[in-house]
């Protein structure tokens, strides 16, 4: 475990906790895309299939349970909780995320590290995670005025994968035969998708003005 990866995991954990905190305290999910949350739940469910078969470390297992639990509870809140679901603007959150799932599945069947169920599911979860933020970014463009917590949530989510890229570079140079093209390319695409959001986020932060994304 190197510093970059630990920082990445903590940033990712913090992004999820910021979101859960927002939903739980103000009982609102305004500005949050349910589609992205559902995609993340699928990402974790398909990536952590080895939760009970491969024990790597206590840290690894605990973090998997936390990610699974938090993403499922966010989806539950946004779908079932009587107060929270009222603040979900479904007519704005219209990204057809089903169109993301099938191509990722087909790609995983074609490009994987080994043609086994677990490895195909693992590759699928990486491809899906790379594009899972799209519904949320589209929703931000639509709703324009982004409240602080949502902006912080998306920023932290983008930052976590950036730390992971540093982790992969570090591991490439320090570990023999550490090569995972699938992970690296997916992670790079994922981070690039946040590019313009980061640009506007830093601008709003620098000029100390409300974060506005161009229409």
């Amino acid at each position: 475990m190197n510093m970059f990866r630990f920082l990445g995991d903590m940033t990712h954990l913090f992004s999820v906790l910021v979101l859960l905190l927002k939903i739980h305290t103000i009982k609102s999910c305004a500005g949050i895309s349910l589609k992205t949350q559902e995609l993340y739940a699928i990402v974790f469910a398909t990536r952590y299939l080895d939760l009970f078969t491969d024990y790597i470390s206590l840290y690894n297992t605990v973090m998997k349970l936390v990610y699974l639990g938090s993403s499922l509870s966010i989806v539950w809140y946004m779908r079932r909780h009587k107060l929270v679901r009222r603040s979900y603007d479904k007519d704005q959150d219209t990204f057809r995320h089903h169109f993301l799932i099938l191509p990722c599945l087909i790609l995983a069947l074609l490009i994987n590290e080994k043609f086994t169920f677990m490895e195909v599911m693992w590759a699928f979860s990486l491809y899906l995670e790379a594009v899972a933020i799209l519904p949320q970014l589209v929703l931000l463009q639509r709703t324009r005025n982004i409240d602080n917590l949502t902006g912080q949530y998306v920023f932290l989510l983008g930052a976590y994968r950036s730390f992971y890229i540093l982790n992969w570079i570090y591991r490439y140079f320090t570990e023999v035969h550490y090569v995972h093209w699938i992970t690296w390319i997916s992670g790079l695409v994922q981070t690039l998708l946040y590019g313009d959001f980061f640009y506007y986020y830093f601008h709003s932060w620098k000029n100390n003005e409300k974060l506005q994304l161009p229409a």
Binding site: N60, V179, H180
Partner: peptide
């Protein structure tokens, strides 16, 4: 050959 050992990253 990329090792397909268990994936140790989250």
């Amino acid at each position: 050959e990329e090792e397909t050992a268990s994936h140790d990253e989250l």
